[in-house]
């Protein structure tokens, strides 16, 4: 299983537009991807409601996990996405 930790760069946290972009990108990988805040239950990264309900704020760390072929590459691209201030773009 592939695993990455990343700090949310988006100034509004992981909701609104950033959440929407992240969920779409996760769904496009076609893999089972989960996202969790430190010490919390992981949730489905392709569910907009679950990702928003996570309530990940700017500056918080989240952990991404994925299974299957291309999991490492998929997580790398998602980490890159979360490291940008998506709301400012």
């Amino acid at each position: 299983m592939a695993r990455r930790t990343v700090t949310i760069a988006s100034s509004v946290g992981l909701h609104a537009r950033p959440a929407s972009l992240f969920v779409q990108a996760a769904a496009e990988t076609g893999l089972d991807i989960e996202i969790a805040k430190k010490g919390e239950e992981p949730v489905d990264a392709t569910s907009i409601l679950a990702v928003m309900a996570l309530g990940a704020e700017h500056g918080q760390e989240v952990e991404l996990t994925a299974e299957g072929d291309g999991a490492d590459a998929a997580l790398d691209s998602l980490v890159e996405l979360l490291s940008r201030d998506l709301d400012a773009e």
Binding site: R17, Q24, D44, I48, L49, A50
Partner: peptide
């Protein structure tokens, strides 16, 4: 943007 985000909700697996 609003409509696209709302469509994502309608497709939510959860």
């Amino acid at each position: 943007q609003i409509l696209t985000a709302t469509a994502l909700i309608a497709r939510d697996k959860g």
